[in-house]
């Protein structure tokens, strides 16, 4: 179940021990010194986009009329996508690594929180009604 089936595509999986795999691409070359390098630039751009999403999140919540709300929400959404693009590029360049959680832990939490579903107070258990006020809306 937790064997390496190559589901991460061409990504390298380093095993420093038997239980702590790393999901990471081989690092693309960049200057390693005191100078501001390409990796620093991409990190700085990511930090900027993240900071902007915070700002626009507050802005969209405070807007008065609908047209402004729509435009600011659109900008917030595109800024999130930009964050994602930069993050993906950092990952592709091998400048960002992830550590997968142990499948047994995930399974344990799935069981635990599946049990909590019995505490749902509404009979309408998560099934969205079309046209309902809180049906899913895409932006």
């Amino acid at each position: 179940m937790n064997s390496n089936r190559g589901s991460y595509g061409s990504y390298q999986q380093h095993y420093s021990g038997s239980s702590s795999p790393t999901i990471k691409n081989p690092s693309a070359p960049f200057e390693k010194g005191p100078e501001f390098n390409d990796r620093d630039r991409l990190n700085d751009l990511l930090a900027t986009e993240k900071w902007l999403t915070d700002g626009f999140n507050v802005f969209v919540r405070e807007t008065s009329h609908q047209d402004l709300y729509n435009d600011v929400l659109h900008i917030l959404n595109e800024t999130h996508h930009a964050c994602r693009d930069v993050f993906n590029l950092m990952f592709e360049k091998g400048w960002y690594s992830l550590h997968p959680e142990q499948p047994s832990h995930v399974e344990e939490h799935y069981q635990k929180y599946s049990g909590y579903q019995s505490q749902f107070p509404s009979q309408n258990t998560g099934q969205y009604q079309t046209g309902g006020m809180y049906s899913p809306r895409d932006y």
């Binding site: 390409d38 630039r41 991409l42 751009l45 590029l89 360049k93």
Partner: peptide, 9 residues
């Protein structure tokens, strides 16, 4: 110097 990073920026 990296073209992909340049394009993204």
């Amino acid at each position: 110097s990296d073209n992909q990073v340049k394009y993204q920026a």
